[in-house]
C-alpha cells in the first residue's frame, strides 16, 4: 500500500523505563491449550507501540491477556506501578486502560449514543460523562451525525470509529487496539490512522495496537514487536524494524 510521503512518525513521550505498561514473560491460552509461550512487552507513557505477526500467532490472545480477559498462567502485567495480574477485566478498565477488540467491536442493536453511554460504564460523575461524550463527538464528527443510528446499520469504518470513540469515553491513559483497520478500504485506513495519531497527540494517550498491515503500522508507531507462534521474535524502534532485512522479507514483502 502506498503511503503518503509527508507522514511523519510521531514523537516519543518521556523515556522512563518500566513504570507505564510492563508485560513480562506472559504464558496463557484457552482451556488447556497454551497459545502464548512467554511474551514480554513494554509501552512507555505517550508512546505508540505496534505488534505485528502472522495470522494466528497469538496477537489477539496477547491483548486479551493484557486486558485480563484471559488468566495469566505465568508472568506478570504491571501498569503505572500496580500489578494487574490478579485483577478482573473491569478493574483493569478502571485503572485507565481501554480496549478496542478485533472486528465489529460494537453492540449491534445499540445506537451510537448508547455505545458512548456503555463506554462510560465505570464513570459515576454525570458531568464527566457529558464532557467525555462531547469530546468524542468532537474528535469524530461523523458519529455526531448519527447519534440515534443502530450500530449494525453502520459501515465497517463507522463501526470502527464508534468502537474507538466508545473506548475513549473513560479518558484512558492507554488505548489498546486490535487490528483497527481490518477490512477497511485504503481511504478509511488512512482516516483511522489519522484518528489514532490524533488521539495520541492531542489527548496524550499511549497506544498499543495490533496491525496486520506491517508497513503502515511501523510507519505510524514509535516502536514495534514482531510475534511468531506465541513468542517474541523481533523488537525495536519502528524505523529500524522497517529497515531490518529479515523483517522486510518476512512481513513487508521484500
Amino acid at each position: 500500500m502506498a503511503l503518503e510521503a509527508d507522514r511523519v512518525a510521531p514523537r516519543s513521550g518521556d523515556d522512563a523505563h518500566g513504570d507505564f505498561l510492563m508485560v513480562e514473560d506472559i504464558v496463557s491460552g484457552y482451556g488447556r491449550q497454551e497459545i502464548l509461550h512467554g511474551i514480554s512487552l513494554e509501552v512507555r507513557a505517550g508512546e505508540i507501540v505496534a505488534i505485528i505477526g502472522p495470522n494466528g500467532c497469538g496477537k489477539s490472545t496477547f491483548l486479551k491477556a493484557v486486558m485480563r480477559f484471559l488468566p495469566a498462567w505465568q508472568g506478570s502485567i504491571r501498569f503505572q506501578g500496580a500489578d494487574l495480574t490478579p485483577l478482573s477485566p473491569d478493574k483493569t478498565v478502571r485503572r485507565g486502560i481501554s480496549f478496542v477488540p478485533q472486528g465489529h467491536a460494537v453492540f449491534p442493536d445499540m445506537t451510537v449514543d448508547e455505545h458512548l453511554d456503555m463506554g462510560a460504564w465505570i464513570l459515576t460523575d454525570e458531568q464527566k460523562k457529558r464532557t467525555a461524550r462531547e469530546r468524542a463527538y468532537e474528535l469524530i464528527p461523523r458519529l455526531a451525525e448519527r447519534k440515534r443510528q443502530a450500530a449494525k446499520t453502520m459501515s465497517g469504518g463507522e463501526q470502527q470509529m464508534l468502537s474507538i470513540a466508545r473506548a475513549l469515553m473513560t479518558a484512558p491513559e492507554l488505548l489498546i487496539l486490535d487490528e483497527p483497520t481490518l477490512g477497511l478500504s485504503p481511504k478509511l485506513v488512512d482516516l483511522t490512522f489519522e484518528t489514532i495519531l490524533e488521539v495520541n497527540r492531542r489527548l496524550g494517550v499511549a497506544i498499543l495496537m495490533v496491525e496486520q498491515n506491517a508497513a503502515v503500522a511501523l510507519e505510524n508507531s514509535h516502536r514495534g514487536y514482531v510475534l511468531e507462534m506465541g513468542n517474541n521474535k523481533y523488537q525495536g524502534e519502528s524505523a529500524e524494524l522497517l529497515r531490518d532485512e529479515r523483517v522486510r522479507r518476512a512481513y513487508l514483502g521484500g
Partner: peptide, 20 residues
C-alpha cells in the same frame, strides 16, 4: 439491564466497557 444487553450483544466489548 443494560449490562445484560451489552453482554448479550458483544461480550468482549462488554468486558472492555468494564462490565462484570
Amino acid at each position: 439491564g443494560k449490562a445484560i444487553r451489552a453482554t448479550s450483544q458483544n461480550q468482549d466489548v462488554a468486558l472492555a466497557c468494564g462490565i462484570d
